[in-house]
Write a protein that binds this DNA or RNA. Structure first.
Length: 361
DNA sequence: AATTCTGTCAACCGCAGTAGT
DNA sequence: CACTACTGCGGTTGACAGAAT
């Protein structure tokens, strides 16, 4: 049995609030203040759930709220804070007076995320999309593409994850489909037939798959040479330059020598289950505490020791969010406050014990 | 003019944390 | 310690309006 509902759903009103309802709640709160929201509807004469009343007040009626458009300065701050702390909307909202977490979340989902993508920046990691593809190849130096199977930890914050939000990549089920049925890359026709509108996003799916594959092959060839060399292969290079959909597809067609039939690549490399992951029928893996610990260790092996990132105003960020060190960029966070530092300290205590490797150089 | 598509945003849902009993 | 109620949070939904076809 789950928790009982907070109110009798059949007797409460739902949907948009009327001006009369707004007036009632405003009148009640101006006389009694906020608190004990479950009692508010009854006392204010409203046929609403207390939770609904609280939401209406905090997200719309509160007198200190701004209802005008977001300013460019606010936009910058949201992007910077999201880059540093992710989708912790309430924390972000704490830095934008007069804005609610809901406001910011909506603005992010409808405007900012799209804007970043159009700029060739992955809105999840805030890194150039092309660089992420390249980094996946570089990670392959020790264990090519092993992170593709992970849904839950840091690597879900990449453009190559299988999360529904991120349509840049086929999900594991689809990769599994190719692995099981062809043991090969999908043909152009197969890619075109993929579900979920993968072909509608700015980056062509097939080209991406090829780019990932080539990065993997390059890393298998040499454990010393950087994977994405300047002239490693045309498709990966193109993806490094944030190519447009047509350019990338064209490049794939123009270089048939890189087609799957000429390589020993198999999709099973994407699908290796970690021994500590519980495989699920849908291809997902479950992260156990033991696995989390193991991943943290492996992550350090791959990326090196965790180092804090010195930001422009002297506060410290997390390399698991920004492993490239882009935080040193002047455009990065200006507004991180002590609360955020504490939050990072709590999550990544080891960050604060290390020297700053790349800043103040 | 009708229909479909897309963007926006208020509101809802379910979960987690916590305080009170 | 167990249970309940409350609050806060992030993800998601759906109504609506305007644009595109």
């Amino acid at each position: 049995m789950g928790r009982p509902p907070c109110c009798d759903k059949s007797s409460v009103r739902k949907g948009p609030w009327t001006p009369e309802e707004d007036a009632k709640i405003l009148a009640y709160i101006s006389g009694h203040g906020t608190g004990n929201w479950t009692a508010v509807p009854k006392k204010a004469g409203l046929k609403r759930c207390g939770k609904s009343c609280r939401l209406r007040w905090t997200n719309y009626l509160r007198p200190d709220l701004k209802h005008d458009r977001f300013t460019p300065q606010e936009e910058d701050l949201i992007v910077s804070l999201h880059a540093a702390i992710g989708s912790r909307w309430s924390l972000i909202a704490a830095h934008l007076p007069g804005r609610t977490d809901n406001d910011i979340k909506n603005y992010w989902n409808t405007k900012l995320r799209k804007k970043l993508r159009e700029m060739g920046i992955d809105p999840v990691t805030h890194r150039p999309i092309s660089q992420i593809l390249a980094d996946y190849g570089n990670m392959g130096l020790t264990n090519p593409l092993k992170y593709h199977g992970r849904r839950h930890h840091h690597y879900r914050h990449t453009s190559l994850n299988p999360e529904p939000e991120n349509k840049l990549t086929p999900n594991l089920g689809e990769l599994h489909h190719f692995n099981q049925n062809t043991n090969n890359l999908p043909s152009t026709q197969e890619a075109a037939a993929l579900p979920n509108n993968y072909n509608n996003h700015p980056w062509d799916l097939l080209a991406q798959i090829h780019a990932i594959k080539f990065a993997s092959e390059a890393s298998n060839c040499s454990s010393e040479t950087p994977v994405i060399a300047e002239n490693a292969n045309p498709v990966t290079k193109i993806s490094n330059e944030a190519a447009t959909e047509t350019e990338t597809s064209q490049q794939v067609q123009d270089y048939p020598e890189y087609s799957s039939s000429n390589s020993g690549f198999t999709w099973s490399e994407f699908l290796l289950d970690d021994e500590l992951c519980a495989s699920q029928p849908n291809g997902d893996t479950e992260l156990t505490p033991l696995l989390f610990e193991k991943e943290m260790k492996e992550e350090k092996d791959v990326l090196g020791p965790l180092h804090p990132i010195q930001m422009v105003d002297g506060v410290v960020g997390s390399p698991s969010i920004s492993p490239s060190g882009r935080a040193c960029d002047d455009s990065f966070v200006h507004g991180l406050l002590e609360g955020d530092r504490q939050s990072l300290l709590w999550e990544f205590p080891e960050l604060f014990d290390n020297p700053l490797p790349w800043c103040n150089q």
